[in-house]
């Protein structure tokens, strides 16, 4: 089924959903949100695209194999946890860098290993959900 209305609508929605998913990922540290929900929202975006334009173009738009995205995500999360060894902390201890802060007043732009962990979760969820969705779409 090809519907011109759906295809045009889908393009708008996919862009919006992907931006919104990044927003959810970034606000997740102290507010509701985070990698899991962000990944789900991004997966919804690509799912809509797959329904409107077919899985072939959705796979092209994604550029990478969904399962590989999930594997890279798992790698990111592991790396975020293993980074703690550099500072001699226990695994998965959050490490913070405040860009532009003066002698540790924590006022600069905060960057943390937790963000990398969340990004990993985001990719795992995105990849895993899309693997399932594409496989189902292609077999129906």
């Amino acid at each position: 089924m090809k519907s011109i209305i759906l295809i045009v609508g889908a393009r708008l929605q996919v862009a919006l959903l992907l931006i919104f998913s990044l927003y959810m990922l970034l606000r997740g540290h102290n507010d509701p949100g985070g990698g899991f929900i962000g990944g789900l929202i991004a997966a919804i975006g690509f799912t809509i695209y797959a329904i409107a334009c077919g899985t072939v173009s959705a796979r092209e738009a994604l550029r990478f194999e969904p399962a590989s995205i999930a594997a890279v995500g798992l790698g990111c999360s592991l790396l975020a946890g293993a980074m703690a060894i550099i500072w001699g902390d226990a695994p998965f201890t959050g490490q913070w860098l405040f860009i532009g802060a003066e002698d540790g007043d924590k006022k600069g732009l905060p960057i943390s290993s937790i963000l990398l962990f969340d990004l990993g979760v985001y990719l795992v969820v995105l990849g895993a959900v899309l693997s399932i969705v594409f496989a189902l779409e292609e077999n129906i």
Binding site: A67, S68, A71, V72, L74, G75, L78, A82
Partner: peptide, 10 residues
């Protein structure tokens, strides 16, 4: 094993 899984999958 998790790290191995990532590399083995890629």
């Amino acid at each position: 094993p998790f790290a191995t899984a990532v590399f083995a999958f890629l």
